[in-house]
Amino acid sequence: MSDDDKGLFQNTRHLVRMAGIFAAGIVAFVGMRMLLVPEGFGRYGHYRAPAIGDNMKKPISYAGRDACAECHADVVEARKASKHVGIGCEACHGALALHTSDPAKSKAVKPKAAQLCPACHEQNVARPKWFKQVNGAEHSGGEACDSCHAPHAPEL
């Protein structure tokens, strides 16, 4: 077949066909975007709006001191005049959301004073000077802290 004497239409047909392929590709891309962009994307900003809910949904481990106070009014009372009044219950007793939601099923464990107290009160030069610190070995000679100090009101 002769290649001569063809018009502009004939001589650019391959380019038009290629342009058609590109156009089809772009249409396919736009279509895919419409189908696949997740729900709620961009509602508040450049993110999936339901991701906020996902972050809220996680279960709680630490119930918070207010939850403890509902049942343990005696301990609240005992701590009232003490320096330990501001400490959250779970700082010493550990995470207790399971206990507060079903006290029968999950019991709080009494922490061991010999391990618990030094975590805060053992002497350490990096601790602020105002904070009460002792050299455990000299101070009690290994005797458990709670044989003298009541943890909820440690002042003697």
Binding site: D3, K6, Q10, L15
Partner: peptide, 19 residues
Amino acid sequence: MSLGIDNISPESLRIDDKV
């Protein structure tokens, strides 16, 4: 690969070169 178009007339190649 030729997209089914057989045309390699000098004019079409000249256009290709320009593009």
